[in-house]
Each structure stands twice: as structure tokens, then as C-alpha cells.
Design a protein around this nucleic acid. Structure first.
Lengths: 258, 258
DNA sequence: CGCTTCTCCTTACGCCGTACGGAGTTAACC
DNA sequence: GGTTAACTCCGTACGGCGTAAGGAGAAGCG
């Protein structure tokens, strides 16, 4: 298992877990924890040490329990990851009324997602092609769709727009926190890495052979070390994207108001 | 290690491996393989079974050898992944002259990258925040930059544009082959997955509570099952992106020719 | 010939997810 | 109130992983 996937476990057990279908046990010893406790422990661990450090044994350790005890709360690791993803969706602010129409609403959707990713960078390491079909993720999806409901788009277009915005956020966050994730995974900061790589690269790389790469690479490297304001880049790109949405909406309606 | 990263190994050993710095051994038995053989075996394995199935033991098995023998060719798994990424860059077509100016050149860059990803979907599962600094990847970077060299952009802007295009391709491919990757990793097709999930979801999900999600989700689900032409979507989005580049270039030069 | 250097392999260690079965606790039932 | 079923928690173990350590044997050098 290399990149992790959501929806990799048993679909039925996953959904039953997310919706807490199992009724409270009547007999037997009282459980020391709840499913939420397990989710919280796992999320905290992943927040701090990254998804690579997330193991059943370490989550259990965090709860002061042996690994196998977790399996009373959760069918397996795959379903635990689904649970984590659905759980963090509760952090998504979902105000009922946002002044400013669809553009303000979509902007908020994008910003909230951006912040969610920044709080939980491990989300980047999970491919959510099959999203966990839990109550919180579905509520989030519903909220996001409402941002563009009633503005003259077809149902399909609404899904496409929301998809496009969240995809954009994903890409932007990937750029913004990639460095942090690698540093976390390898224990080597970008600076330390480059410090070691540069001398060797200098010996083998011939700038005359690839003058463009040499020139631009140097310029870009210097710049990123100095400036690089991911939040600004994110906001800038988002405006460009919403411009595109605006043109689509006005094409569909002849009017971008509401 | 959960998500894989390039540049996760020893930077020095990685670069020395990629540039084949070690001179041919003079004494001792003749090696049965070359570094390229190992790379090819690993790539073939990842192509077929995905990055999750890539283990030192399985690569070795493919070569008819025990796991530890690989360590005579490659310092470790992290460096092997760097090697794989640098190696597939040789597949990138890099014509010297492309008629049609920067737009045609950038289009070709995007298409070639798209095809590269489709041939090797496991590339999606490797975060290349720290790209392997090998000869082939650097040659590819140089080639991509040349697409926008001499059109009136600053060095920094050139890097940004190339980055933007390759990021776009990454995102588009992610959408296009995500389903394949999950199916590969879980042994369950999207249809099979949904077939099992749907009945349970129906029991727990209340459409009245999230009417927008219910309505749009159904419409989108139907559509994706039927249509969904990723290549067309890719080409369409690419044109929009290049429109943006065009406006940047003409703003910088007052003229988008050349 | 002997020495060095190299390839390839065996063994082993500490991780991982989790299957299996047992011990002990609690509530429901007779 | 005793029995029993249900439940939590855990010890052990299996087969996977990456790879450290060290050894056997081959090939070239002196």
C-alpha cells in the first residue's frame, strides 16, 4: 500500500462505521472509548507525524491500549482512514447565509477547504476518488453545491464547478505544503537536502548542455528560497478560476447576478 | 512510509546513481544486470500492479534473483524510485522544432506529459516536490522551458508557466486514472464498489436532509457512468489554461507572436 | 599463487496489518 | 441467583515489508 486510498476497505462496513449504525452494546464491559475517540487519536497522530507514521499500533499506544483492541471500534485501517476523512469534515464552517452571491460563497468554499488541508496535510496523501460516504462528508458536499445552486447551472454543471474548485484547492495546497510533508517524511528539510545535493550535482551537471534549465532553475531556486507566498498565489489563482466560472454562468443566463 | 516521495533517500547516493557515477568494476564476477535492467524491471512491475505492489523482493523476483542482490545496483528503495522517475523521462519526445510558436510547443509539452502519466500511472503516487536530479529529468525540464523561452517572459515567469502546465496535467490525470488506480489497489472496480455501497447508503442517507447533494449526486453519478471523456476534458481545460498564458504573454510584450 | 574486489545469498531484526482464540466483565434471561 | 450470551481487551502468531551484517565463491590484479 503506497499511496493510501479512501474507500479501500469493505464498503458496507465503512458506511456502517461512518453512520454509527451499530447500536450500543447491551452486555459486556463498558467500552473505554468511543469511535470518535479513536478517530481523534488517529487524526492527532497524522497531523503531527504524517500519514506515514499512522499505524494501528501507534494509534493504540496513544489511547493507552494494545493494537488489537482497536479492532473492536473499527474494522481495519482502511475504514479508519475513511473515518478520519469524514470526521475532519465537521471542522468545515458552513454558514447558512453568505452575503455577496455565488462568487462570495464559492470563495468561502475554497478558503475553508484550503484551511482544512492546512490543518490536516495528511489529507493530501489520501486519494479520495471514492469519497467516504459518511454524514459529514455528504453534508460538506451538499453545502458546497448550495454555493452554486439556483444560479442557472444544470445539476451536472454544478457538480463540475464544485469539483473544479476543490481540485484547484487540492493542487494549490499540494504546492504549498509539499515541502513540509517531505521534510516530515524524510527528516530532512529542503535546505539540508539541497545543501547535500548541490555539490554532487555541480560535478555531474553540465550547464552548457542545458543552458535554459541552468539559468531558469537558478533564478527559480533563488526566488523560492526568498519569497514564495503560497496564500497569495492561492488567492490569485482562485480569482482567475472564478472569472472562468463567471463567464460560464453569464453565458448560461445572460446575467451573473443573484 | 505511506505516500511515497521522490528525493526521500540519500541525496548524494541518489544523484550518483542517476548519473551512473560509479565506474565499471574491474575485478570480481561480472554483474548479471545493469542499473537500467533494475529500473526497467521496477517500472514494468509498477506499470502492471501499481506502486503498492513494488517491493524489493518482487523486483528481485522479476529478475530471478534474491532481494538483497538488488542492493549491489541500487542503494535502497527510495533511490530506486528516483531512478524509475528519471528513467521514464527518456520516453518523453523532445522534438527540436515545433511549428506554431509557443502555444503549439506548450500544447505538445502538456500532451506528452499526459501520455507519460497514462503509460505510468504510478507516477501519480509519487510526490515529486523534490524532483530526482537526474540527467533525463533535467533534460525534460530544459525542453519544457524552451517552449516558452524567448517569448518575452522573465526566467521566473518561465518556471511558473511550466510549473502551471505540468500541475494542470497532474490534476487532470489524477481525475482520469484515479478510478483505475483504486481498482488496482483494492481489487474492486468502481461498479462493484458502488453496487455494495448503494444499498447500505440508501438505508442511512436521508435525501430530504441534503436535497441538493442527493439531486446533483444522482445526476453526476449517472453522467460519469455513461459519458466521461477524460481526454476531451483535458484538452478543453488546457485551451483555457493556455488562453491565460496568452494574456500574460501579450501583457508582457504587447504582442503574442513568435 | 594469493590478495583484493566484487556479486550474490542467507539470516535476522524490527516494523507493519490483522487472524485467531482466550480471559475476564457485564447484562439479560430462566 | 445462577447461567449464559455478548462484549472488551489482549497475547500470540503469520506473512509481508526494508534492509543491516556477514559469508561464499568468482574474477582480475600483482
Amino acid at each position: 500500500m503506497t499511496t493510501d486510498f479512501s474507500g479501500a476497505g469493505d464498503p458496507v462496513r465503512s458506511i456502517e462505521l461512518l453512520w454509527r449504525v451499530q447500536e450500543r452494546p447491551r452486555r459486556g464491559p463498558k467500552p473505554r472509548f468511543s469511535v470518535d475517540d479513536v478517530a481523534a487519536a488517529a487524526i492527532a497522530l497524522a497531523d503531527i507525524d504524517g500519514l506515514g507514521a499512522l499505524s494501528m499500533r501507534r494509534v493504540a499506544e496513544r489511547l493507552g491500549v494494545q493494537a488489537m483492541s482497536l479492532y473492536t471500534y473499527v474494522p481495519g485501517k482502511a475504514e479508519l482512514i475513511d473515518l478520519m476523512l469524514d470526521t475532519v469534515c465537521t471542522e468545515m464552517p458552513m454558514p447558512a447565509d453568505v452575503p455577496g452571491g455565488w462568487r462570495a460563497r464559492l470563495t468561502l468554499v475554497a478558503r475553508s477547504n484550503w484551511e482544512l488541508y492546512l490543518r490536516h496535510p495528511w489529507m493530501l496523501q489520501v486519494a479520495t476518488t471514492r469519497p467516504p460516504l459518511g454524514p459529514n462528508l455528504l453534508a460538506k458536499y451538499d453545502y458546497e453545491l448550495r454555493a452554486v445552486d439556483g444560479v442557472g447551472l444544470s445539476d451536472l454543471e454544478m457538480d463540475l464547478i464544485v469539483q473544479m474548485v476543490t481540485d484547484y484547492v487540492h493542487g494549490a495546497v499540494r504546492g504549498a505544503v509539499g515541502a513540509t510533508l517531505v521534510a516530515q517524511a524524510t527528516g530532512l528539510s529542503d535546505e539540508q537536502w539541497w545543501e547535500r545535493a548541490a555539490p554532487v550535482l555541480e560535478k555531474v551537471f553540465d550547464p552548457a548542455r542545458h543552458p535554459t534549465a541552468a539559468r531558469v532553475g537558478a533564478a527559480a531556486g533563488e526566488e523560492y528560497q526568498a519569497a514564495a507566498d503560497p496564500a497569495r498565489a492561492f488567492a490569485f489563482g482562485l480569482e482567475r478560476l472564478l472569472d472562468g466560472v463567471e463567464s460560464l454562468i453569464s453565458r448560461q443566463t445572460g446575467d451573473s447576478e443573484k
